[in-house]
Design a protein around this nucleic acid. Sequence first.
DNA 1: TTGTATGCGTTATCAG
DNA 2: CTGATAACGCATACAA
Lengths: 353, 353
Amino acid sequence: MKTKTVARVGRKGGAAAQADTRVTLEQVALAAGVSPSTVSRILNGTAVVADEKRAAVDEAIARLGFVPNPVARGLAGGRTLSVGVVTQTIDSPFFGGALRGVEDELSRAGYSPLFVSGHWNAAHETRCIDMLRSRRVDGIIVLTARLGDSALAAYAQQLPLVVTGRQLKAPGLYALNFDNFEGGRLATQHLLDLGHRRIAFIAGDPRHPDAKERLRGYRAALLAAGVPFEQDLVAPGQYTEDSGRMAVERLLDSREAFTAIFSANDQMAFGAALALHRRHLRVPDDVSLVGFDDLAGALYTVPPLSTVHHPVYELGQIAGAAMLQLLAGEQPTARLPPPRFIARESSREPRQR
Amino acid sequence: MKTKTVARVGRKGGAAAQADTRVTLEQVALAAGVSPSTVSRILNGTAVVADEKRAAVDEAIARLGFVPNPVARGLAGGRTLSVGVVTQTIDSPFFGGALRGVEDELSRAGYSPLFVSGHWNAAHETRCIDMLRSRRVDGIIVLTARLGDSALAAYAQQLPLVVTGRQLKAPGLYALNFDNFEGGRLATQHLLDLGHRRIAFIAGDPRHPDAKERLRGYRAALLAAGVPFEQDLVAPGQYTEDSGRMAVERLLDSREAFTAIFSANDQMAFGAALALHRRHLRVPDDVSLVGFDDLAGALYTVPPLSTVHHPVYELGQIAGAAMLQLLAGEQPTARLPPPRFIARESSREPRQR
DNA sequence: TTGTATGCGTTATCAG
DNA sequence: CTGATAACGCATACAA
């Protein structure tokens, strides 16, 4: 006979804590008069059990306030009911919404997300993924990785992977991609429709697939409208507010004429707005400004920013749901909604000279 | 003899995965010619071992690429090297920085944060904490909870707790509080120094201790300056952009005269700026506007927002470090730096009539 | 359908 | 200083 039934004492004395939640499956079995395996079966639905015993177990579980220990579960069953989520920076206004979507979706199924930050660094992403694997997560969601396709495909052979921000087909992997090209096209088209012909573009980091696609959309729209593309109207940025601010300053210093700016993301557009303000240029009277992503803040800039809506929350939700499907052995098929342009107050027809 | 040495096959066939990281402590022991206990001792520094054996084990670990399984560790040792972090919304521009600080600090010591969102709801916070406890986190950091002091103190009897946003002393608990009163006083004083006398205040939710303190600081500064406090100049808000926008609209509709607005947080100040813009009031020429928190976005509003700097990243770092100390049996003593006011361009002396 | 026995990978408690 | 050996709490072949 074992001595497991000895009540465990709480941390250093203290008042008798209320219903210590450390009840084990074995105790439940004992209380219900069945074997531990039966309790386990009921918990996991692994097999059919007699209604009578099931009732007894359910009652015991409720009475004792039993809650299974995920750690033990993980060791024994190999599943931890947790999935890793590697993002770039946990406090990014862009990824934030996606994280919320992932969390909402996973928790609905009893899974917990394990968030880690990759810091826009492939080596660090690798460490993060290895750490997650060592923690035995059941799967990993990678939001916009720096890591190469082949590295991701390799990981996918070891455990289910959902990646965003790229096209990629591989076994055990599901890729979710937003139509950045179309988004870039829409934003540019909006400015063209207003009558703008000289439209500056603040680009993102060219190592970023999203950024390249958005630029491609910009060029495609110009081409379709018969407006020549001019390299001098393209200013490089890094997707940060400050890089947007500096891009506009360079643009202005170049004395290149333009009546509108399309920024490859909202964060750079925020910086751009400040740079314009500093040069006493008003938005949209002197210069129209449109962004991309529709961050929460875009609604509250002065004036509110016209931008391409990027469904980040849904992106997170869908990524979470896809992971759940992968885990269940199903093949996900959900896709992201198409981009739509939100015209607010930062863009209008160019001023007559 | 057990059959553990049988190589485990990867997921459904596939190319022979590179160095399968599933090496066990037992295999290391075997390879090094020592007992598993010795390996464990070396790993944990639990006891002194002969240099010779230590070398052999270190070599075996390196050669086999062994990495301890945290799940098994958690089961056997009772420590999971993970700490729960309950925040309100994972994508909040305010909490984001704190999460980053926590992550940076914890990971430095090999701990992983487990982020969960409480959604500004005491009942949900309780569920989150219970979930974290069931996952056997070693401690919990609670960022600005809705939960009452007594509930937190009770939890602290079960596992180490670090809480922010309140004063509280209890065994096993460390509270970290920012001087919101002084911050509110500083912001108001700044406006008074500029010559403002009719200063509107956009308040936060009064259930929020921070919000009450900031209001108290506002009143204290007025009092010290001999400026009468007027209830009609106080507009309630909920710390969201939209509530700030509506607060200003109500203020303006009330026809109450004011030359400056102090918003209890930056998010509401962002909304306030938009409301002023809509009414064709310029910041700071017509109305001065100051915020509180110094969010990343405050640098890029047009014009940049004068505000009280709230060291959120440091808050996270210190909370993480304090948790580490608690876990090590030490008593944390670190405190938050005092508030400082950052004058930018949204505030200036009132216009002469 | 249900119970028994064993293993999951590590730490901890013993002797030696 | 080191090595057996027993937990840790649960899942799961296997037997009944």
